[in-house]
Design a protein around this nucleic acid. Sequence first.
DNA 1: GTCTATATATGGATAGAC
DNA 2: GTCTATCCATATATAGAC
Lengths: 203, 203
Amino acid sequence: MAKSPRDQDTSRPRQLTLTEQARRTQLVEVTIGLVAERGYAGTSLSRIAEGAGITKAAVLYHFPSKDAVVSAAHEHVLTALTGHVAEAVEAVPPEGGPAAYVRAMIGHLREHPRHTRMIVEAMTQGGGDGDYDPSLRWRPLASLLAAARQARGVTSELDLRTLAITIGGAVDAIVAERLADDGYDTGAAADLLVAMVDRTLFA
Amino acid sequence: MAKSPRDQDTSRPRQLTLTEQARRTQLVEVTIGLVAERGYAGTSLSRIAEGAGITKAAVLYHFPSKDAVVSAAHEHVLTALTGHVAEAVEAVPPEGGPAAYVRAMIGHLREHPRHTRMIVEAMTQGGGDGDYDPSLRWRPLASLLAAARQARGVTSELDLRTLAITIGGAVDAIVAERLADDGYDTGAAADLLVAMVDRTLFA
DNA sequence: GTCTATATATGGATAGAC
DNA sequence: GTCTATCCATATATAGAC
């Protein structure tokens, strides 16, 4: 039996061949698409194989299991999202951090609607990983909120955890609405959310 | 083969026997529990039957299909939630409607954590129904917001659709956080959310 | 009203040929 | 590197006995 690329010795990382890379990328893309339109439950090994034009066994040559394919897809969309948001936040002064965060999140998910479903599913079911830890999401944002307040010299009491959780949920809901209605103006929605947040944050 | 109770002539609705009622109720309860702890995907006919102490075939005697069981469970939790919230909203003057809505939603889901997962799953995958229509959720809330503003005589421009969507997402996120952390104070969270909403609504 | 037995489909995964 | 063939588990659902 041929050795799977995943089984290679990882101590001296080897360059994947171009075709291997292409296949893996293709499989990840197909998986993202399937999750987007049929949901996590409707994404089977058979359909992934079918979408890529190969057999189930061939898929399992490139990845050790179905969960590994889904995890790779999950990681891919998450990396893209966090990278985009981090870049946007770092490009503005601390006071503008929260606003940049909100606009980058909504903007990215609006531009990549196929990624959106994948991310949502990953949060509710832990798509391949163990359980999802919500604090991974709100803690970074809470830090951002604290930094913004400090930069403005605001010292009043405020539950930043709840504010961060609230913002996260609001972003999700706005993106979901956009998914259900192409005509929904996410820019205006982001503006309103930012206004609410800023008023609360700097009060 | 015995006639299923679901196959009866519906033109003259018949009283279900007590044992039938009890079984159906039990099956719905078991299903809610399963969805709560194993998710929608992990809720199979076998496990429902096992949980109720009967066989798969027996379950399919009381319901025409597995999806019918899940739909019934879904309907049950949704009816309980909307009933509770409607009652709370009607008990206060219009200006207090939005606050009552938020507190009732968070309070109910906090008191019935097993229902929560079921409702969330129903929204993301349409648990048995077709696709979920988000406007079914935000439209009633938007009306509530409009009524509150009118009662206070506020006439400024405000995107009530986005505000309603935002509130819904925030409530979901707060409830989810509570699910992940028993120590999270949902009362304080509701207070903060209500404060944010009222400030935006009556500005 | 509930069971046994069975039909049938689909899922993920493996062994070994080529 | 990909395929055929196969295995095994689990799923929903039905037919008919009791």
